[in-house]
Write a protein that binds this DNA or RNA. Sequence first.
DNA 1: GTCATACTACTCGGATAACATATGTCCGAGTAGGGGTGG
DNA 2: CCACCCCTACTCGGACATATGTTATCCGAGTAGTATGAC
Lengths: 156, 156
Amino acid sequence: MGEGVEWGLHCCVTLAWLREEGPVPIRRLAAWFDLPQEYLKKRLQALARAGILASTPGVRGGFSLARPPERITLMDVVTALQGPLEPFRCDEIRQRGVGGEGAGSEFARPCGISTAMRRAELAWRRELAAQTIADLMAHAPAGAERTRRNYSRMTG
Amino acid sequence: MGEGVEWGLHCCVTLAWLREEGPVPIRRLAAWFDLPQEYLKKRLQALARAGILASTPGVRGGFSLARPPERITLMDVVTALQGPLEPFRCDEIRQRGVGGEGAGSEFARPCGISTAMRRAELAWRRELAAQTIADLMAHAPAGAERTRRNYSRMTG
DNA sequence: GTCATACTACTCGGATAACATATGTCCGAGTAGGGGTGG
DNA sequence: CCACCCCTACTCGGACATATGTTATCCGAGTAGTATGAC
């Protein structure tokens, strides 16, 4: 799917824990997870364009959550990072070639394969939309305190 | 995900409808859907390696279903064509860098992000595993007769 | 007429390129803080 | 001492290379049918 999705999710949780501290620059986040700084920036910019993160320029700038963690679902993050994945378009293939000749009104209804695939994809999205960043925070309660402590100790 | 998945699915349904006719060569299937013949062969070879299709060489050879359609799920086809997609491995990133310092036993349990993503993926797989090729056939009952008629009329 | 044999045409099988997308890197525009200078 | 202004350092923002996976293509190995010739 793309590794940047995982990074974006982790960064969102971390930003939620550091919400009191103000904007967090990419430099800190990259060192935090030991990730390539420039590419991580690119991904977080995509999140900012989607309205999930807010970016503040300047010397004390950085990225911060644009909404409270309860209102950011995993679906939002995934959609923003990998784009709205195109659904199966079976109608294109099934009525080409000789196979579709004389089909008449059979192709009026949507393709069964398309329907089945879409149903599965919908289940996936539903699960993703049911979880928020706040839920992830609640999953590791000790992380909040540890994150703030480690963050204040960071030198760079 | 890959367009070949859609092609493989359509070919499986067609092969199920033509099960009485014996093996169907790639040449016919490619003309059937107007698809690139060589690449379609590659994908069907993958399905054969997975034990979903049976390939018979020789001048009257071709591909045919290795199992009855009721025992082939969409999950089988998808897994065979795109490989067993690697699950989220968040543990790699979250305990790198300075962010994970002093985490103690917090990282003993699996990462919450990993869990949430896996749950969504599982819902997707469950939907795919619940549908079989036979279900897709039942979705378009008229297709069986049309397919057999068009197939016997094919010249090439 | 029948059988064995060599041939041919067609199939699958895997190794090899072309392309797309995801990943990684670079330099420029803009802002806020800090220091210097004049009042 | 205070206010104003310039300067620097740091940030984000988008444009530019590289790597990996998907799509497309090629040639070789093998098999079954078929024609041919001998018996």
